[in-house]
């Protein structure tokens, strides 16, 4: 990946994969509301994809200078194997962990690269993923840990 466009294409592709992951999980899901839930996760990823596309077209800029809160909710949770009878709680854990992995990927790439323009792009993408993770963390905090 040597150009900004290539990086963005990679990232857009990853969002598409995530959306596909959730929708295929939704197809298999047994519980009606999990189906609905997973589809909404999928839509969330498609929104991310749309956002990156508009970055590529130059309609908007990715900023990397903002602080995104890390609630560290997912850090100590167990890894979940997504199955057809996945619960809301587990689906949220999967989602948080996926976003965290994406964040790690882009941050690592930003560290290994020297080109300032590309570095900036990776940092921007990392921040985007951090925001996505925060979204799921907040949902986990509100929906699952109501009493905690």
């Amino acid at each position: 990946m040597n150009t900004v466009d290539e990086i963005l294409d990679f990232a857009i592709e990853r969002e598409q994969q995530a959306a596909d992951f959730y929708s295929s999980l939704a197809d298999r899901a047994q519980s009606a509301w999990m189906k609905e839930m997973l589809l909404s996760f999928s839509q969330e990823e498609m929104r991310h994809k749309g956002k990156l596309k508009s970055v590529k077209l130059g309609d908007r800029l990715l900023k990397a200078d903002q602080h995104v809160q890390d609630l560290k909710v997912s850090d100590y949770l167990v890894d979940i194997e997504p199955t057809a009878d996945i619960s809301l709680q587990d689906a949220l854990i999967v989602a948080m962990k996926r976003e965290k992995a994406a964040y790690r990927l882009y941050s690592d790439m930003a560290r290994t690269i020297d080109d300032p323009e590309l570095k900036q792009m990776f940092l921007g993408l990392a921040q985007e993923e951090a925001k996505h993770k925060l979204y799921f963390e907040v949902q986990y905090d509100d929906q699952i840990m109501r009493d905690n």
């Binding site: 509301w33 809301l88 109501r146």
Partner: peptide, 17 residues
């Protein structure tokens, strides 16, 4: 005791739609 969820798997899936 961190919270509870519900269980409605007894509703057939075509109704759930």
């Amino acid at each position: 005791a961190i919270g509870q969820g519900g269980q409605i798997d007894f509703i057939p899936s075509d109704y759930r739609e």
